[in-house]
Design a binder for these strands. Structure first.
Lengths: 350, 350
DNA sequence: ATTTTTTCCGTTACCGTGCACGGAATTCAA
DNA sequence: TTGAATTCCGTGCACGGTAACGGAAAAAAT
């Protein structure tokens, strides 16, 4: 199928007996065109299969979008650091096309800090925004303002009730809990299971682990109704205390052979597990943090379910780029991305 | 970090007291510039941190690259059909940027057909080529010709000894065999294992399953030295015969509880397995063909290891685009992509 | 010293769109 | 019927870079 010369806006102008100015007005339907001319131009466009030259268009418009990304502050090796890598990846792809990405961060345990970040973000008046919603109310205010300024925004990681978002990139949370249970019990020997959970500050509004837990429990109920599932709450900032908690738990329930966590902090219990190698048969957690990958390659953790926040932000940025620069809406609004099963034998390819 | 006005080629011309023609000659170093002027321009470029506007550049050059893809003919639901979907995906992304992709196919069991496809491809004089090497000799001739015409090309799926390829996208084959063994024996109950293999025509030159098999056997030897691994060869075009072969195999070795295949054809033995549900505990194969996914969701197949040829071609096309249009070489030449573990609980996200 | 060649550089016409501006044609008001 | 207000449309420049063309200056040949 040979591709002949692409028709230009001038071809259309000639064929419809009008000028390129009129054609341009039709293309961006900004009025000032008679019904007759409009129809004529439209028919010619369809006939020739005209497609605008994005290079010329972008050049003429002088686009140089700045895309703002709003995520929590992160420590080294944390979940959000992965997201940051995605920003870098996206910058590499579309950076040469004149796109700048700007990062705004906040303290996840301080609503005022979030407000502050929002204000700074809005003050920079970006062309598009990528957000990981954490404070429901704060995000609502932010998106309302963005809509008012008609700045497109996408969500990733967590979705939020909202009308105007351009796209969402995240995980099917319920399914991920289900999958977690399957990976945990794949050796068919589970009878007593421990789920380690984090003591959450009550202000935390959107917690994906709640839904994951639901999927996990449903799986267990369906496949292993006789299996006992127990919870243990730990404080992520107090390793000594965590150690004690684990000690006393396994003292009370020595038959526990399988351990799962629904957040990215499985590395917190890796030290204990390594000091008691005979106790546990399978351990499953979430997310490919460096610490988790280390535990995985040492065999302490059996499997990780990875959601690749880097890909999520990258796709979010890409979607904004397509929309702003190329004028293309995303194919799907809600994009549930793949969850990958990581074992010690396939981590190297990540 | 506010981004001020990007310097243009004119800014550089002014600052160096020369004209934009000279600056352009320096930028594309095509000579006709005195040493003195060259140095002057270069220093100004560095000083201002000049970066060319790709939109203007592409527009002026009138780029409309045609990228040729060379793969075998495929039946519906086959491995190569997945690759084709990647072409569609890539077209969606860079199609609006004026890129055309053209497909060339050949009969994988007919070397003459391959030659023919190569000739047609060369005759179309594309701006870049994506190849899945199958006939070693034929590919060598093709790439030699491409190098002569200085047309960039990338490999995917299989790599080939070759000097001039721009990039390669594929799977770490050895590791994939290792991973396959791990997934097969994850229930720790394997003592007799069956590996189903395809009777290959001898002309077939590059067969990734050989290396996969090596990885598989190494894993088994390391982790389950007492486990017996047997092979059974089947003819992919003769389902009746396959059925008989399986019957007599399991009659001879009724203790066989685990089955693996190293190619994408695990669906071939799914019917037999479904008629003998009690016989086998775990079944592991490769690649997310529709037929395989069906078997997976029915529970006939326990896990699939997917290499996503669609992503591989898409990245190949992307790499060519970056190189041709944006003038960017790929970061890495050999790109070993992730292998994903698919179970019935995470297939929906793919 | 004059002609020829070479080296080097500026000028200029695009590439295809976007958009401001101004003017012609039409309609409305008086 | 005339002036004003709309409606509608064409013209022309800008965007930043590419590359052909031609000419001035310097070097080489006569």
């Amino acid at each position: 199928m040979l591709q002949k010369e692409k028709p230009t806006i001038m071809d259309i102008a000639h064929m419809s007996g009008l000028s390129k100015g009129t054609v341009d007005r039709v293309l961006h339907n900004r009025g000032e065109v008679s019904r007759k001319s409009y129809d004529k131009v439209m028919s010619v466009i369809k006939e020739l299969g005209y497609e605008p030259n994005v290079f010329a268009s972008a050049l003429a418009r002088g686009v140089s979008p700045r895309i703002a990304v709003l995520i929590p502050e992160y420590g080294p090796g944390s979940y959000w650091e992965l997201a940051l890598m995605g920003i870098g990846k996206a910058s590499d792809t579309i950076g040469p096309l004149g796109v700048d990405t700007e990062l705004f961060q906040y303290n996840p345990s301080d609503a005022a800090s979030f407000q502050d970040a929002c204000n700074r973000l809005l003050a920079s008046s970006p062309s598009g925004v990528v957000v990981a919603p954490m404070f429901r109310l704060g995000v609502q205010m932010l998106t309302a303002e963005l809509r008012r300024k008609s700045i497109p925004y996408v969500f990733f990681d967590t979705k939020q009730d909202d009308e105007g978002y351009l796209a969402y990139f995240g995980l099917p949370e319920y399914k991920s809990g289900y999958l977690c249970a399957d990976q945990l019990t794949i050796d068919r020997s589970a009878s007593e299971v421990l789920v380690v959970r984090i003591k959450r500050d009550p202000f935390r509004q959107s917690d994906p682990t709640i839904i994951r837990r639901a999927g996990f429990l449903d799986y267990m109920h369906e496949h292993y109704p006789d299996c006992t599932v127990r919870s243990l709450f730990i404080d992520p900032d107090d390793p000594v205390r965590t150690d004690q908690e684990l000690n006393s738990f396994f003292e009370a329930f020595p038959g526990t052979t399988h351990v799962a966590m629904f957040n990215s902090r499985i590395y917190l219990i890796a030290p204990w597990l390594e000091r008691h190698p005979a106790q546990v048969r399978r351990v499953v957690g979430f997310d490919n943090l460096t610490a988790n990958l280390n535990a995985l390659s040492r065999g302490t953790v059996s499997a990780l379910i990875a959601q690749h926040p880097d890909e999520q932000v990258a796709m979010g940025i890409q979607a904004l780029f397509d929309f702003i620069v190329l004028g293309k809406k995303p194919l799907r609004r809600d994009n549930y991305m793949h969850m990958d099963i990581l074992t010690r034998y396939n981590i190297e390819s990540y």
